[in-house]
């Protein structure tokens, strides 16, 4: 167990190192010049100023040297300053990341809480109307683009029922109740799509498991269908579902891009989008680096969780 965790940890570090190289290079590969961003219009007029800013930003050094300087600053917790506001990027990220994680976590909970029962019904009542309806709800959820489900949620819960705010953000410290009211629709919107994935996976995995001998054995020894399902079939059927939740959790992170734009939620993704439009390179790099880090940490945690549930994962036997 410890060896497996150590091994996965090291390979996560390697992936993170590769990702940081990609993030660092992105600023050099893409068209556009940060110096022009700092100086604005006068960049063309004054070659001396351009050279000075270039030296200040360290852009006159060879690429590998720049990378080492940048990477060591990052390791010391310094991601530079925003070209727009002059604020430290780390401070901005520290404010934004928890807000995005809130949405992801809420979406994940919504997806699992609705998706697993839905998939179970679809598998149990296969060939009956209830099962068909569950399957249709699952594929509809799976196919609904985040902004379509989001808009329909706003229509129902804000416009018609007037229960929840349609968009916006209120800090938890200012008004906890409004904070969570604002959080509900983004979480459900991002979760609906994922719910479809979870339900479909649960259904197919459960159908597979229900035909196994040990389930028949459980029924033969006198358990009811429900007992055989919950005690024997479901736990085994959920192993691949956990795996898919882990693999797709990254997609949830991708979904925050749309959800944050739709609901005016000031999270990490909306920061990245605005930084890209403004050519704010340090903020952009900081966002991308955080996104990769979140992504890698999630998949590490999922792998460890899976190795606890299913020992075959860590010993490598299939």
């Amino acid at each position: 167990m410890h060896r497996f965790v150590a091994h996965r940890f090291v390979s996560s570090l390697i992936t993170m190192a590769l990702a940081s190289i990609v993030v660092f290079l992105s600023i050099h590969l893409l068209p556009g010049d940060p110096v022009v961003m700092v100086l604005g219009e006068q960049a063309g007029a004054d070659p001396m100023a351009v050279a000075r800013v270039r030296a200040e930003l360290g852009l006159d050094l060879p690429l590998p040297t720049q990378f080492v300087r940048w990477a060591s600053a990052v390791l010391h917790g310094d991601l530079g300053h925003s070209l727009r506001s002059g604020e430290p990027v780390v401070a901005e990220l520290a404010r934004r990341i928890p807000r995005s994680l809130e949405i992801i976590f809420g979406g994940l909970v919504a997806a699992v809480v609705f998706g697993i029962p839905l998939g179970t019904i679809a598998a149990r009542d296969r060939g009956r109307v209830s099962g068909l309806i569950a399957s249709i709800v699952a594929i509809a959820g799976f196919s609904a683009p985040v902004f379509v489900s989001g808009i329909i949620l706003v229509l129902i819960f804000s416009l018609w029922l007037g229960l929840l705010p349609s968009s916006g953000y209120v800090a938890l410290d200012d008004d906890p109740l409004t904070h969570f009211a604002c959080l509900v629709l983004p979480c459900v919107a991002i979760g609906i799509n994922f719910m479809g994935v979870v339900a479909r996976m649960t259904r197919s995995s459960l159908i597979d498991t229900l035909s196994k001998d040990y389930v028949r054995m459980a029924r033969a020894k006198g358990l009811t269908r429900g007992q055989a399902m919950t005690r024997h079939a479901l736990p085994n059927a959920l192993v691949p579902v956990i795996a898919i939740v882990g693999i797709r959790a990254g997609n949830l992170l991708g979904g925050t891009v749309i959800v944050e734009a739709l609901f005016d939620w000031p999270g990490l993704s909306s920061l990245l989008v605005s930084a890209c439009f403004a050519r704010d390179y340090p903020v952009m790099q900081g966002c991308l680096l955080s996104i990769f880090a979140i992504f890698i940490v999630i998949s590490l945690l999922i792998d460890i969780a899976q190795s606890i549930v299913d020992p075959r994962v860590r010993t490598g036997t299939k």
């Binding site: 594929i139 509809a140 799976f142 196919s143 609904a144 683009p145 902004f147 379509v148 808009i151 329909i152 706003v154 229509l155 416009l159 349609s166 734009a261 739709l262």
Partner: peptide
């Protein structure tokens, strides 16, 4: 959808048109 969503409180109909079409197409493909 991105443009019309801002007018949802004036008239929700227009934003629903491209939304439903997009949804139907993705569903059909799936």
């Amino acid at each position: 959808i991105g443009t019309l969503k801002d007018y949802i409180f004036i008239n929700p109909w227009p934003v629903l048109v491209p939304s439903i079409v997009l949804f139907a197409v993705v569903l059909s493909i799936n």
